[in-house]
């Protein structure tokens, strides 16, 4: 089926591995189907496009019942790193790129990447702090202008 007239906008507000990846994979999948895709990173989601953070996205081992690690253990130093390392190993096997490379791939694929202005102000971030592939910093109003006839997905 031809999907080329479809347009999709994905909002990513979380900064954990499992918060960020669904947004990246959905956006990339949309491009692979020939749809227009736009990503809007807000709140902790900004970690995925912040230069000094994007290479160090981690899975949460505390407050995450699906990890099946007792909370006290999950809080031990290094637990999150270990869990992230193990998960990334599995993801490598499935050809899933790391976050920084994924952002590059999305840009090459023609997906548009934006950051939320209010969240940027809140975290005292400037566009310089963001990856060069981020096309711009948008207010809510600008976000709505751009997503006019798109389907919006909040991950």
């Amino acid at each position: 089926m031809d999907q080329s007239s479809k347009k999709i906008a994905i909002i990513c507000s979380r900064g954990s591995l499992d918060g960020i990846y669904p947004a990246l994979i959905l956006a990339n999948g949309a491009r692979m189907e020939g749809m227009d895709a736009m990503l809007f990173f807000t709140f902790f989601g900004l970690e995925a496009i912040t230069k000094d953070k994007m290479k160090n996205i981690q899975v949460a081992t505390v407050g995450n019942p699906a990890m099946h690690i007792p909370t006290m253990l999950g809080g031990l130093p290094g637990m999150s790193k270990l869990a992230t390392h193990m998960m990334m190993k599995e993801m490598d096997k499935l050809d899933i790129p790391h976050v920084d490379e994924f952002i590059e791939m999305l840009d090459d694929a023609g997906a548009e990447i934006y950051a939320c202005k209010l969240a940027m102000d809140m975290f005292h971030l400037k566009q310089d702090d963001l990856d060069e592939r981020v096309k711009g910093v948008l207010t809510v109003g600008e976000f709505y202008e751009k997503t006019d006839d798109a389907k919006v997905i909040f991950t």
Partner: peptide, 16 residues
């Protein structure tokens, strides 16, 4: 094959 080029060669859904 660079991602960009694949999208240029097969516009509108390169994989499929």
């Amino acid at each position: 094959f660079p991602t960009k080029e694949l999208y240029q060669l097969f516009p509108g859904g390169p994989g499929k």
